[in-house]
Each structure stands twice: as C-alpha cells, then as structure tokens.
Amino acid sequence: MSRGSGVPGYWYGGKAPPPHARLLSGVYGALTGLRRDLYRRGLLRARHPGCPVVVVGNLVAGGSGKTPMTIALVERLRAAGWTPGVASRGYGRAEAGRPAWVEAGTDPALGGDEPVLIAARTGVPVRVDADRVAAARDLVARGCDIVVCDDGLQHYRLARDLEIEVIDGRRRYGNGHLLPAGPLREPPGRGESCHFRVLNVGSDPDLSAGFGEWPMWLEPADARPLTGGRPRPLAAYSGQRVHAVAGIGDPERFFSMLRGHGIAVVPHAFPDHHRYQADDLRFGSDLPVLLTEKDAVKCAALAGERWYSVGIDARLPEAFWVALLGRLPTRSSRPAQAP
C-alpha cells in the first residue's frame, strides 16, 4: 500500500541522475539564475506591502519542516505583541488561480493542506494566492502588522525584511543537483544570503547544526482522535503495532519519530500533498491509525474510530528568537501600513 515519497530515487540516493535530467537541470539553472539577477539589478521590481515581511522557505523541492517553523514563528511574534498573518500559495489546491481566505474548517482541496493546518493551529488570518504580494497586501488591509510568507524564498516579487531557510537535517540538499536532476530549486550557496538558517534535526540525537545554523527540534504532541474525543499521550501506543500514514516531504521522519517512542510502525508513505481516497486507507487489519497533522486535515471525512492525528511542535533555542526579534523594528518604529 505504500506509495513512497514521490521523488526520483537518485535525488537522495547514490545513483547518478540520467543524462536528460542533467541537461534540463542546466537549462533550469540558467533560467532561474537569470531571474534572480534581474531582481538583484532592479530590472524586475520587488513590491513591499508596507509592513515587515518574514519569509520562511527552503532550497529543495518538497518538505523540510517549513510548516512547523511557520507555526512556531507566528506564535512567537504574537507573544511579542505583533499581529501576524500568513501568506501562502496553497500548493495543490483546486482553483489555484483564485485567492481565498483560509480558516480551520476550510476544505483542504480549496485552501491547501498546509494553510488549513496553519490556520487551525494558530488562528491568525491566512491568505492563499499565487501572487504573494497581493496576499500580503490583503493581510495588511485586514489589520496584520507583520506578514509571514510560507514557502516564499523563491517568490522574489515580494520584497522581504527577513529570510529563514529551513534545511532537512537528514537529507540536506540531496545529490546537490538542481531540478530535475536533483531536489534543488536554487544552488546551495543561495542559503548563505538568508538571515537565518534553521536545521530541522527532528528528534534525531545524532544530528547537530553546523556553523551558522540554528537547530530546530520537533516534539510530538498528544494523539487527537479525528472523530472527536479526548487526546491520548503518544506513550499509550508504546509496544503496540499501528498503521502510520504520512504524505509529507520525508515520510520516514514521521515513522522514525513513532519508532523512537517504542511504537511498532506499519508504514504507509504517500507523496507530499497527496489527495486521499478511501481505497488509499484500507489497510486490511484493525489497528490504530496514526497520521501526521497535515494528512489528518485531509482525512477527517474518511476517518474511523481509532484514527488519530499526531501534531508536531517546533522548538528552537531562545537565543534564536532573541536574534530574530532583534532584527525587526520596535513597536514604536514600525513602518506605516500601505493603503
């Protein structure tokens, strides 16, 4: 039943990419490099919404931990007195050309799985729009005084005040090639221009952040029934077999986290942003089903009685937050909001 992560094996394996992929990678690199240079020279103009913009992104196609980082950032900004909103593309949603406000109850097919999760976890305004500048301006018009752009590192049309690169601590940049020969959207050196580089070490004690990187640990929350009811501590499944469902950038990270809590995992990996059908989730045995929070928002209508969503909380050193907040304007010197 496992579908895998949906990426070519040579991206993160030892096999060399095929010649045609390497050729296309060169073309892709030339085009994206030209685009970056046009923005750097001012020949293409970036637009600013009139309030601070913090971009959270990565250099690879697929997940690296951006969503937990975004949620943690929003919560910390709000605690510091800001009124944040989140701008996102809403990858994979239907009617992608139509902007939309996303709330906790929005259908993920219309709002995107990650924006719905962010809205549910934070309660802040979330705007999805292929044009992130328009999304940011809509957030400002709604009363937000700071915009967090989720997965916007390559959206150069939106001017930004801070950039945060999130790196998968286990897979990093894969084979180091640009798309489609490898997972990279931009060369690794692009990350050096970001104000902060966050290494997602998950719950792996063997991973450690390198020079210039801040570690981010992912801690599992209680397992919440998709059909309603009281949450259960993850420790309640220790020593048990469960079906584990993950349609994220690196499903193995979720499975490893569960195994680290003594849970015997029957893994079911799906491609990132997978749209689930009932047949996907017929496993043939009546075991508890643990899903990532991102998958759970898409599977509520399909859920059985013993299906549980396992949330993730991102933890970063306090020094990281001090450094990040120190780069933002003080409350008395915030720029006037754009009309």
Results as ranks from 00 to 15, higher is better:
7 V>D: 12
14 G>R: 15
17 P>F: 08
18 P>K: 10
19 P>Q: 02
20 H>N: 14
25 S>V: 09
26 G>L: 13
27 V>N: 09
28 Y>H: 11
33 G>K: 01
34 L>M: 12
35 R>N: 02
40 R>Q: 07
42 G>I: 08
43 L>S: 12
46 A>E: 03
46 A>S: 15
50 G>N: 04
51 C>M: 14
55 V>A: 00
56 V>I: 10
62 G>I: 01
63 G>Y: 01
65 G>T: 01
75 E>P: 07
78 R>W: 11
79 A>Y: 11
83 T>Y: 14
91 Y>C: 10
92 G>R: 07
96 A>S: 15
99 P>L: 10
100 A>N: 00
101 W>Y: 11
116 V>L: 04
118 I>P: 01
120 A>C: 12
126 V>Q: 01
134 A>L: 15
134 A>T: 05
135 A>P: 09
137 R>A: 09
140 V>M: 02
140 V>N: 06
141 A>S: 14
142 R>C: 11
142 R>I: 08
143 G>Y: 09
149 C>R: 02
149 C>N: 02
155 H>M: 07
155 H>I: 14
156 Y>P: 03
158 L>F: 10
158 L>E: 09
160 R>I: 11
164 I>F: 05
168 D>L: 00
174 G>M: 02
175 N>P: 14
178 L>V: 06
178 L>K: 06
179 L>T: 01
180 P>V: 06
180 P>W: 06
181 A>T: 03
184 L>I: 05
185 R>W: 00
192 E>H: 03
193 S>T: 14
196 F>I: 08
197 R>I: 02
199 L>K: 01
200 N>C: 11
200 N>F: 00
201 V>F: 05
202 G>I: 03
203 S>Y: 07
209 A>N: 08
213 E>K: 06
217 W>Q: 15
218 L>A: 04
219 E>Y: 10
222 D>H: 15
226 L>K: 06
229 G>Q: 04
237 Y>A: 05
237 Y>M: 05
238 S>Y: 05
241 R>G: 13
241 R>N: 11
243 H>I: 06
245 V>H: 01
251 P>C: 02
253 R>V: 12
257 M>L: 15
263 I>F: 04
265 V>A: 04
265 V>W: 00
268 H>Q: 13
269 A>V: 12
271 P>T: 02
272 D>Q: 10
276 Y>I: 13
280 D>E: 07
282 R>G: 13
286 D>N: 14
287 L>V: 05
288 P>M: 05
291 L>N: 04
292 T>M: 08
292 T>D: 05
292 T>K: 00
293 E>M: 00
293 E>Q: 13
295 D>V: 08
297 V>P: 10
299 C>M: 02
303 A>V: 13
304 G>C: 13
305 E>Q: 15
306 R>W: 12
307 W>D: 03
307 W>Q: 02
309 S>D: 02
310 V>L: 00
314 A>Y: 06
319 A>P: 01
321 W>E: 01
326 G>Q: 11
333 S>C: 14
335 P>A: 05
338 A>R: 10
338 A>S: 12
